[in-house]
Amino acid sequence: MKAIQVHRAGGPEVLELTDLPKPHPGPGQVLVKVEAVGLNFADILYVAGEYLVRTRYPTIPGMEFAGVIEALGEGVEGLHPGQRVAALGGSGAFAEYALVPARSVLPVPAQMSAAEAAAFPVSYFTAYFALATQARARPGEWVLVQAAAGALGTASIQVAKVLGLRVIALASSEEKLALCQGLGAEVALLNTQGDLVDAVKNATEGKGVDILMEVVGGEGFAQSLKMLAYRGRLLVIGSASRQMAQMYPVSLMKGNQSVIGVWLTPFLSDPAEMQAATAFLMPLVASGQIRPVVGQRFKLEEAAEAFRFVLSRKNTGKVILEP
């Protein structure tokens, strides 16, 4: 089978198209013929050796994908060959076939395309756990979504609206802001405007946002803190700037504010949390109330170009690789 393999830490230049033996499922595993792969910024960090888990080389990147089950390992129940599924495997998706534990497989509605299914797991489960679990969002609260036209951003807007939240979207172009407004954002602001803190305060009648989804980090982190309302919660979900952020914890005291980390991976091994998230999200998918935004598509052999595209910050929705 064709696969993208990485032998050393680096950027797009270390992605190598190679031929590898087709894997066979062991006990508790599912072999899936990959139809589409969702490219996440976390994949770029993983290849670079900068992710939250240690990268062991050689490796095949790709943490989320969709495809059709080809074979089941011993002991797997509730799934069948020919069934389209989405999967969160951690790695291994940049290939024509991928092995994943059966517990990591999620059946998807028939009306969902392979690309939409591949764009679903990471972004929507992250958005749910961020807003509903970590932030304990309440209807009527204001949430600010950074990089709002991206994969996580578009998912977060949709989940926020279902939760009854009021959304402020930040993005880098008018075209991206229009997309966010179409998804339900009440306020859309260019992230380059100089008076951003004032604009956020004005939009919220002077109080600031109750929840802020922070994915950029670096120098902008201090600005994000200034946008919080009394008892506001800043959710640290990423650091696209790949720069260190500084914070003075005592500054949180005056407003009884919180800074909360959000990482999807530990939730995946918690059956109760995953059951709650799945019960919330899947009916919304089936009804069409939430729908992944699919962005630029690339062939598997164009993985390096796809990496560069994501790093250019030009993408909207989820960038997709197709074997």
Rank of each mutant, 00 (worst) to 15 (best):
14 V>H: 02
17 L>A: 12
24 H>K: 15
25 P>E: 08
27 P>V: 00
27 P>I: 02
39 L>C: 13
40 N>D: 11
46 Y>A: 09
48 A>S: 11
60 I>N: 02
66 A>G: 03
73 G>D: 06
75 G>P: 00
75 G>S: 01
77 E>W: 00
80 H>R: 12
85 V>P: 02
86 A>G: 13
88 L>M: 14
88 L>Q: 05
93 A>T: 08
107 P>K: 01
108 V>E: 04
110 A>E: 13
113 S>G: 12
125 F>G: 07
125 F>H: 02
126 T>N: 06
126 T>F: 03
132 A>Q: 02
133 T>W: 04
145 V>F: 10
152 L>W: 07
163 L>S: 05
177 L>D: 09
177 L>N: 08
193 Q>D: 09
194 G>W: 03
205 E>W: 14
207 K>M: 10
210 D>K: 00
213 M>F: 14
216 V>A: 06
218 G>Q: 03
222 A>M: 06
226 K>D: 15
227 M>C: 15
232 G>F: 07
239 S>Y: 12
251 S>P: 01
254 K>S: 14
254 K>L: 13
257 Q>R: 14
263 W>L: 11
263 W>G: 04
270 D>L: 09
272 A>R: 15
290 I>G: 11
291 R>T: 14
297 R>Q: 12
306 A>E: 13
307 F>L: 12
307 F>Y: 14
312 S>N: 08
320 I>H: 02
